[in-house]
Design a protein around this nucleic acid. Sequence first.
DNA 1: ACTGATTTTAATCATTTGATTGAATAAGTT
DNA 2: AACTTATTCAATCAAATGATTAAAATCAGT
Lengths: 216, 216
Amino acid sequence: MDTNNDITPNSSTEDKIKEAARRVFIRKGYAATRTRDIADESGFNLSLINYYFRSKEKLFDIIIKEHFQSFIQSVMVIVNNRDTSIQQKIQLIINNYIDMLTKNPDLPLFVLKEINSDPDKFMAMIGFDKVNGGGTYLAQQWAEMAAHRKAPPVKPIHFLMNTASLIIFPFIAGPVIRNKTGIDKEQYNNLMEERRKLIPYWVSLMLNDSYEGLNN
Amino acid sequence: MDTNNDITPNSSTEDKIKEAARRVFIRKGYAATRTRDIADESGFNLSLINYYFRSKEKLFDIIIKEHFQSFIQSVMVIVNNRDTSIQQKIQLIINNYIDMLTKNPDLPLFVLKEINSDPDKFMAMIGFDKVNGGGTYLAQQWAEMAAHRKAPPVKPIHFLMNTASLIIFPFIAGPVIRNKTGIDKEQYNNLMEERRKLIPYWVSLMLNDSYEGLNN
DNA sequence: ACTGATTTTAATCATTTGATTGAATAAGTT
DNA sequence: AACTTATTCAATCAAATGATTAAAATCAGT
């Protein structure tokens, strides 16, 4: 009665509006989204969105929060698993991301754009401010590995950047690349599938190289 | 008298408005930019922007066109240079991009967002629709190289994606990474400087590997 | 069937926002 | 000086847009 969930017996309409709003927000971004767009997309009257959610901004907050909670959690489970190796974790994270991004190709651009307009606010909204990467089991494994072998003359942050870049950027740039190459959506998804195996391989190349060729 | 340029004797105000508009548009995106923001940023009256440029959209078009013309041209010069090797071209392009992106860190996100909202229109606007990558001298060099050695079992498009990813994505994700790591802007620029040498090295690793380890 | 609560809608409001207008000022021409 | 043209601004308009309201429709319980 006061836990405030499941109060609504039949939340079908509310959920439909949320789903419609999620689609429109992620496709067009917060600024370019009109509440009327959401009404149209959901098929309901404009004032319904203000009846269920107080305002455009509140609706936005709620949707985004719900959308990311589960994903962040799934990644945290992977990085804190004590039974998988670093290599396995990398592969699992890549799979997790590629699955998610194939379903939601507009998401990275949306996220990065909204973060860009107010980093602290958005990170707090999606609960990413509380995530402490350094406290994960993966970070511990990484530190142990680094202690045992001669570290490459390259700061670790570069490898994190590279992995994220190789996974995420092709989704962001999808429209450009498809437009220039004429590759259709399905073929492009196949390319992304190929990268499931390729990215871990490339990352290990970069990670295990001696960097002796890197001079002058 | 009919070539329509240099008609304006003193274009100082017009240029100031253009500069202000460029800053605001690229920082906030087209949808979130108010003409009043541009007026404020420029220090001039709101109606001045409609006096010089007919509308918000026309102003946008003009600015974007001018902004990209020079950059695209500089890249085309590099890829069509008959006196440099592939490796040298890669290095030059990377330098070109990192220079430009260090000065305009908001640019990639802006471009990708606008392209996303209407690929054909934006590509045409910046003149990128006329660019034919396959017709460049670099493409010819690439084809020759591919003919002479056993091609890796990986489609060439992946290497293009990877290079672009490694260059551009760290700029896009800068705010997120800085927010999580506490790295300040100057330190982050230093990281980007390090990548001038690192990215070509990583790309050659990926390019020259035998891919024998890539199985199952 | 009746009652009260919940859900949905059409109509409307208030603010924001892109654009226009007409006057004021400056600068050059005759 | 008188006239013309280019530049700038305050005031205002019209459309778009987020939000509210009051009434109608629907539903649940009796």
